[in-house]
Simulated scan of single mutants.
Amino acid sequence: MRKGLILLAIAVLSGCNRKEEGTSPTYKDLTEAVYASGGIYPRNEYKVLANADGILQQKLISEGDSVKRSQLLFVLEGITQGAREQATANIYRQSQANLSSNSPVLAELEAQVRTAQTCLANDSVNYARYRDLYQQNATSKAELERVQLAYQTSRNDYIARRSSLQRTRNQLYVDLQNSRSQYVASGQEQGNTRVRSFVDGKVYEILKEPGEVIRRNDQLALIGSGHDVFVKLAVDESDFGKMRQGQEVVVKADVYPNKVFKARVRKIYPKLNRVDQSFRVDADFVGERPDAYYGLTVEANIIISQNNRVLTIPKSYVVGNDSVWVSENGDKKKVRIVKGAENFDLVQVKGGLNEKSVVVNPE
């Protein structure tokens, strides 16, 4: 990656002409920076997704519109939703009728219980009468046992029919609850065809148009903050170790040729992007910020260090990583130096040279 392509607002750096015969180290203020490129993006960005299958019936927004939380954005027409909702509504109404006071199902069972209760009462009276007759030797034991069996049969039938009535009433109650749940779920699914915004923001992109077939989880639009933006930068792998939260960033956008924006590093992501061998670094603007346009291309210098009055030489005079050619008594020799901070133009010299040294072009 290139470094120092932006003129830093806090320092004006100058180098020496390669055509000069030689130069001496001089004391200057040196700003060390790492070059990064990237874009400007809105905060609270999210993709608007469809929650149901259907056909896009209405698009109620356009790119650039401001939207409010819960504002209706899209309306889908469910492919089978209408029929499903009608079916669940019919089942729910029928379940309510089956458990009502006028329920024909319960009325029939209640009538059977009353009939069994009447039969039990008659057989009970008859059994008591035959029992008295038997005690008076006015009837045979066989007749008493026949009447007793009829009474026991009536009692068991009454108990069974009463239990059947209660079981049916309980089952009808369960059926009503199930049908109500299905009806509510159907209504919620119908609500899923009404797509609303989760945040206050701005519409940056719309991906579907009315008439298109929509599947669940298809992206319909892109929404983000309409005023709060940040810088997403790609920093070369070789410079990543120099990144720290809070570092000052100088940002230049092509769309604003005469402006330089300031920002500070907010977050450093630890995952390497193997496509371009870079790491992601996010920075927040300080003071003036660009308008909320999505993906504006920017170049930036991330300030690594500010070095006041340090001994420097033009970077173009450095040979390899840490050597320069110097002139002594008319002779030219190679000298190793100890480098400090550096930028696109200058290198700090911590050792190997002094103010009187004459550094010559490497030819």
Results as ranks from 00 to 15, higher is better:
C16A: 15
M1E: 01
V326F: 02
L165S: 07
L172I: 15
A221P: 05
Q348R: 06
V125P: 01
N361S: 13
T118Y: 13
D157Y: 13
K315W: 03
K259N: 08
Y204S: 11
E342N: 06
R69V: 12
P257F: 10
A52M: 10
A341M: 12
V265P: 00
T139A: 11
V318C: 03
R264E: 02
S140H: 05
G351W: 05
I91L: 12
Y173N: 13
L109E: 05
A83Q: 10
A221Q: 03
S278Q: 07
R2A: 01
A33F: 01
K350S: 06
A97V: 11
I79L: 13
P290M: 02
Y173K: 14
Y134M: 03
N307Q: 12
A11N: 15
E21I: 09
Y294N: 14
M243R: 09
G241N: 11
N51H: 14
Y269T: 03
Y127C: 11
K141E: 08
R180Q: 15
A128G: 09
V199C: 04
V318H: 01
V281L: 05
V147N: 08
Y173P: 02
A50I: 06
L172K: 13
E143D: 15
R2Q: 01
A341G: 12
G351L: 07
E85M: 10
E237V: 10
K271W: 04
S179N: 14
V249M: 00
Y183I: 12
P42S: 10
Y183M: 15
S323Y: 10
V250L: 02
N354M: 04
A142L: 10
L99F: 06
R274G: 09
V231S: 01
G187R: 14
K252C: 00
N17K: 09
A11G: 12
L13D: 07
G330E: 11
V199D: 10
R194K: 13
E237R: 11
F344W: 00
S327T: 03
R196N: 07
